[in-house]
Design a protein around this nucleic acid. Structure first.
Lengths: 348, 348
DNA sequence: CTGAAAGCGCTTACAG
DNA sequence: CTGAAAGCGCTTACAG
């Protein structure tokens, strides 16, 4: 009823949001006190506390995020930077899941996720300015390990905000902290399984071998099965898709007709291998054993269902967020490698 | 050299970012002048302008986004709300593309995208508080038209920030402005094509019929082909996937052995239909014509390639952003229906 | 326990 | 053309 009323300046139709000032007036206290009941620290006498809460309810007050950020020097938001085009990344259903899990986990701590592309040079320029602009408190980098990501990594290293990388560890040294599933252990387990089953002529179908993740899987597997595979039995598919897997298998079959097993570095590829086997008149696993990697949704849907390596994508997402928030809080940042699980189904 | 130096309070290791104050001092002008050269309005004498720019370069100054937002009462960011779980939405590759396009288009205007889940009740509570908190200037709702989205729509309607809905128009009235491809025209065109080709026993494979989009496609198509289809020749697949399409086709074949054509409401489903046809020993299109919808990447990769309806996903994304930014600027908001194109390949 | 005041880092009339 | 000052809406020592 005092000041600030009757104000009818232009204002593009936006009714003035209720502010802390309003709540304070309603409750008959100072802004400081309203602030104190909001963020719970410092003691406030129960009676005034209730009065303030009641005033907040009546006015439907929600604190302005921007003002809060400015005062507290934190944005309560983190950037999710994609190291590859979304269209490519989300071909792998595990990445959609990861996105979902990260969003949910951040929501639990009332953090927002700002989605950013980082694949192209122009994206990186924007990102650099964005980070300097103080838009976010931390960064999660989602990459499938493609080599162009190196530049992104250098950029992220050269700035002060905490960063957490999702995906495959770095071949040489650890430029940034990461969370990843244990690809080596997974490939070794799968290799042992192949050996145990007595397969002796083993093909390998990979894709994007320039990416650290795929390379690691292949090399760990190949080392494990030793002489049971040969260099020319490795075929690189165009992409991580069913069709690419099918095509690669046909190529592989032309090179070596009598393989008894194939390891594909992703489930989508493996599904394509099974399709190709059908076309070639080969029974899976009797004539040709097939294994994939990821245990994504498709693994359970092929006929026969796929033997594969399960990564706990949920755990990766949660750790990614947990570690990042800890780091934002000032804690030492740590890299984490999560265990994987060999899932034996009927295909191998 | 004057005030503000020697300040060594706790401060968790964060070196103080350079502020407008610093630039002003460097350039020997006031903060106001620095601000004026930054946002280009108002005249500044070229000489002082250059001095300021030089000072900005020397100090590597980038304006703090939060302070800017508070002063200007705008956040330069918009929320992308997903009406369905990311894992489900991104099964359709068109949605990854849409996400990419929206991000890019916003980047051109220096807006950020805040990614939010809106599928579950808890998400909606957060969203409501988020919007009241003034985190964003506008909202884009991505939905595949599932009915649970109604609540989300009510929520979005009852708040003052501009909203733009991607996807299918609303069956009754237009509660919110939207951008969508012309599903009706697409289905009609495809129906006519089937009629022209002389198909007389036409099956339909749909999915998620509770969603407006799918329903619209089916009904427009069915109306167009008239007596050439029958109610029991409509099968609903579990989801928009290759395997679900294959399974649905097998079901359909059991119900009616002598169909000569099938329309599937998405390319993924149609791809599955082709696979099933192979298993049933049917040649496509000689024994069974098959058409899809979306012209997503898979349409060109099937054997034979799919006849389908192309939606310009890029245009949808760009219009979505364009209209939203206009609305944020105060302009009248408009719904937009974008033309589609019948793409005739070999499958039908 | 609580109020008054200063501060977060910008923008923007208002004078000059 | 440019400076000084007030303001954006919060938080947080500092007194009391």
């Amino acid at each position: 009823m005092v000041a600030g009323e009757g104000d009818t300046r232009a204002g593009a139709g936006a009714e003035p949001r209720t502010t802390m000032e309003d709540v304070a007036r309603e409750a008959g206290v100072s802004k400081g006190t309203v602030s104190r009941v909001m963020n719970g620290r410092n003691w406030v006498k129960p009676a005034t506390r209730d009065a303030v809460l009641e005033a907040m309810r009546r006015t439907g007050f929600v604190a302005n995020a921007t003002a809060r950020s400015l005062a507290m020097r934190r944005t309560d938001s983190v950037a999710l930077v994609l190291g590859a085009p979304a269209t490519r990344l989300f071909e792998n259903p595990n990445y959609s899941l990861l996105l979902q899990v990260i969003t949910d986990e951040l929501a639990l701590s009332d953090y927002s996720l700002i989605f950013m592309s980082g694949a192209r040079p122009a994206d990186r320029d924007r990102l650099a300015r964005f980070l300097r602009g103080g838009h976010v408190d931390g960064v999660i980098l989602l990459s499938a390990g493609e080599p162009e990501v190196d530049e992104l990594i250098r950029l992220l290293q050269s700035q002060p905000i905490p960063v957490m990388v999702s995906g495959h560890p770095f071949p040489d040294g650890d430029p940034l902290p990461f969370v990843a599933a244990d690809d080596v252990a997974g490939s070794v387990a799968l290799g042992r399984h192949f050996v145990d089953r007595g397969y002796r002529r083993i093909g390998v179908i990979a894709s994007h071998l320039e990416a650290a993740g795929a390379r690691i899987r292949v090399s760990a597997f190949v080392e494990t099965v030793g002489a049971r595979t040969e260099p020319q039995w490795l075929v690189e598919a165009d992409e991580f898709s069913h069709d690419a897997g099918r095509a690669a298998m046909l190529t592989l079959h032309r090179r070596a007709e009598d393989l008894d097993a194939v390891f594909a570095v992703s489930d989508a590829l493996a599904a394509g291998v099974i399709t190709a086997a059908g076309q070639l008149g080969l029974q899976v696993p009797a004539d040709l054993a097939v294994a994939g990697f990821d245990d994504s949704v498709i693994a359970g849907r092929t006929t026969p269902p796929l033997t594969t390596v399960r990564q706990d994508v949920g755990a990766v997402g949660r750790e990614l967020v947990r570690q990042l928030l800890l780091a934002i809080g000032g804690a030492e940042i740590r890299s984490i490698v999560l265990p994987v699980e060999l899932v034996i189904r009927d295909s191998a």
